[in-house]
């Protein structure tokens, strides 16, 4: 086996892990707080991507700036979805929540189809094809930046959850809904904010990866599936889990492409998922519940 190839595969996988981590952060936040499985996750992210695409092509705004706009828009969407829909079925059986989010996903995907058409597209990265060569292997600068952003976002969210009053309130509501009610927390409001913040992360992530991942309206499904993979492996509700899980899945797929026929590489991540589900269902960094 070609050593350079293995090294390059490892490096590319690790850096691309930043993209995966960003994808998973919003999902893990929403699940961690509300135990709601957001099947519209990928489609929300696609909207974040399209918003940054619009701003890039129409107003020339770089995705590294416009992610703020995507985040704000998705925050509003998240708030709306939570208040208008999820809130009403929070106690409904599992399958109804799934159906609801599938409906939301279908609406979002096809609104994107109506609004932007079916062609795949991608935002041109301001970094272009810039690379940094370390001997025979190279570092893709756009991915390096995304990786750093993923670290920053994870840290910022952790600070928000652990160091601010609102964050602590959200965590309290997540840990113990009943207890939070008892001590006078308006759980509905907290949920709405949490869903909003989670959705804002999804939007920001969408914008930040829009120059790396190509997208079109049906892309949402595969984004959702990959994100679920990562979040389960890392641990539902854990920010660190989403980050490490992203790196792990990405490296696994990249090395899968090195050692197997690359069209089989997703087998590696799905197998990893199954192993984790069976032997450590709370994920690598999730809280174990009895």
């Amino acid at each position: 086996m070609d050593v350079t190839l293995v090294l390059q595969g490892l490096l590319s996988g690790l850096l691309f892990g930043g993209v995966y981590s960003l994808m998973a952060v919003g999902l893990t936040l929403i699940f961690g707080v509300m135990r709601v499985v957001n099947f519209a996750h990928g489609d929300m992210m696609v909207w974040g991507m399209y918003l940054s695409y619009l701003l890039a092509t129409r107003a020339g705004i770089d995705p590294y700036l416009s992610f703020v706009v995507s985040a704000a828009a998705l925050f509003a969407l998240g708030l709306l979805v939570q208040r208008g829909l999820v809130d009403r079925v929070i106690d409904a059986p599992h399958e109804m929540q799934i159906l609801l989010m599938l409906g939301v996903a279908l609406v979002l995907e096809n609104l994107a189809l109506v609004a932007f058409g079916p062609e795949p597209t991608r935002v041109r990265s301001p970094l272009g094809a810039a690379t940094l060569w370390l001997g025979p292997v190279f570092v893709d600068l756009a991915r390096l930046v995304t990786f750093v952003v993923a670290v920053l976002l994870t840290v910022a969210l952790s600070l928000f959850l652990y160091r601010t009053d609102l964050g602590r309130t959200i965590r309290a509501a997540a840990d113990n809904t009943y207890g939070a009610l008892v001590i006078g927390i308006d759980v509905r409001r907290v949920y709405a904010v949490a869903f909003g913040v989670g959705a804002a992360c999804v939007g920001a992530a969408g914008a930040l990866v829009s120059s790396i991942l190509p997208f079109q309206p049906p892309t949402g499904l595969s984004l959702s599936v990959t994100s679920f993979n990562i979040v389960i492996i890392g641990g539902m509700g854990s920010l660190l889990g989403a980050f490490i899980g992203g790196l792990l899945v990405s490296v696994a797929e990249s090395l899968g492409a090195v050692f197997l026929k690359p069209s089989l590489k997703e087998l590696v991540s799905f197998s990893l998922l199954i192993v984790i589900l069976l032997f450590r269902p709370a994920g690598l960094f999730g809280k174990r519940t009895s």
């Binding site: 070609d2 691309f16 993209v19 892309t219 990249s254």
Partner: peptide, 20 residues
């Protein structure tokens, strides 16, 4: 011959493999 799953999210390792 290097096939990849469609749609892919990343092709850098596939291309490295081609390069090798």
């Amino acid at each position: 011959a290097i096939p990849w799953p469609e749609p892919p999210s990343d092709l850098s390792t596939e291309v490295s493999k081609a390069k090798a």
